[in-house]
Write a protein that binds this DNA or RNA. Sequence first.
DNA 1: GCGCCGATGGAACGTCGTTCCAATGTATTG
DNA 2: CAATACATTGGAACGACGTTCCATCGGCGC
Lengths: 241, 241
Amino acid sequence: MSRCSMVRHAGGTRRRLQALSRERIIEASIDLLDSSGEDGLTFRALSERLSTGPGAIYGHIPNKSELLIAACDSIVARALNVSSAGATPEATIRGLALRLFDTIDAHPWVGSALSRAPGRLPMVRILESIARPVCALGVPDEEQWATVGALLNYILGVGGKNAANGQLARTLGLDRSDFLGSVSAAWSELDPAEYPFTQSVAGQLLTHDDRADFLAGIDLILRGIDSSRRSRAAKAGASRR
Amino acid sequence: MSRCSMVRHAGGTRRRLQALSRERIIEASIDLLDSSGEDGLTFRALSERLSTGPGAIYGHIPNKSELLIAACDSIVARALNVSSAGATPEATIRGLALRLFDTIDAHPWVGSALSRAPGRLPMVRILESIARPVCALGVPDEEQWATVGALLNYILGVGGKNAANGQLARTLGLDRSDFLGSVSAAWSELDPAEYPFTQSVAGQLLTHDDRADFLAGIDLILRGIDSSRRSRAAKAGASRR
DNA sequence: GCGCCGATGGAACGTCGTTCCAATGTATTG
DNA sequence: CAATACATTGGAACGACGTTCCATCGGCGC
């Protein structure tokens, strides 16, 4: 193929036009994941999109698991790269939570990728972003881990559930509301004696606002944090007088 | 093989001794998942353990995804089949949370199986178990979904993260504390300017008590619920006088 | 005792992640 | 500028997977 030609690069290591690179591979992976879902990321489909063979990719990425983590990290880093200067810690947490919620909604595969890479860079980024405003709220050291954990798991849990719904709907060839409709119908047919709560919310499943419910949960946790702060302040005040 | 012989069964449908059945398949699947992890469940390994061929299993189970959900449901049902009569709603929630935490710890694959089956029976069981004491706490209808969601996602999130740690450790051939040690070491080497919180908790990772931290998070959410209740009661009292 | 029919289990198919290696094209050397 | 050294490439091949298919078999009704 004569379309290949040499190129002088500042760093000097790049060889060809359109040369394979970690960045190009990750970008193509994200495209593939967004357009074809979690199962759409395949070394064959990826190599075809990059006009190369499956083996070539292994020169830049050690394996599929690392590729998924890298793609995930790229999305997460983009989502968290927003300044929230001047906002209250509560508003920062709410904004952060919504941004993550929307990100996972737009890239459903990110949710499950995160849960399969505990302690890795994308997760650490999120941990850190949540911890900063939590510390700003004055949560004492010994409660920080539990507090951050509560927020982190709630955010990723709800986001992931939403994403799982979307993924499953895609797999079944339904759109989102059709899928929720089928779940709602299945819930309605449960034994009311054994599953009273599930039955009663079956109807809400179709009409409720996911984002609003999500925020209500965040506020619930924030109230718990505030309640701890108040009781701590009261105790300190009592012992001081 | 002459070890097969007929058997008279009350219902009359069973044909052979050791006949294949949904129950036997699920039981064997749980054994396999417990002993060899999430990747250990294979139709080949399963059929070998059941002394049959891979094709025979499809007479009782539609596909692998359903098999995993069924195995998961079996474990979840067992975990939730405990009476908590006489306990306060708070104590019931705490007990339920700990039981789920320990169950996922003992069967790490349950965590990821749950996250891949939103709205299915095992998830509904858990939803219902959490909703019952939440309703008993007097949470009003419009807040129930968010409240139950906060608890549910926190419990499954922390449990799942724990489980993921265990799974990953197994895959890497390390035991749990060695794995946590390697994560802790990786976190320690992060840029302190960019990841101050993560760095500061890196040390705690090895020494902290997972269950205690988990319960602290549950209490945080319970405090949030209680705080909502109090402010609602205050408002009602003010408008009444 | 015989034939029927569902249950069975092993072979086979297509796809996956991954490995391997000959061929390619770039950089360095003489 | 020609020849060599070497990293990158890409396509073939491997083993394992989920799933399908169908010849065979075993228990039941006649």
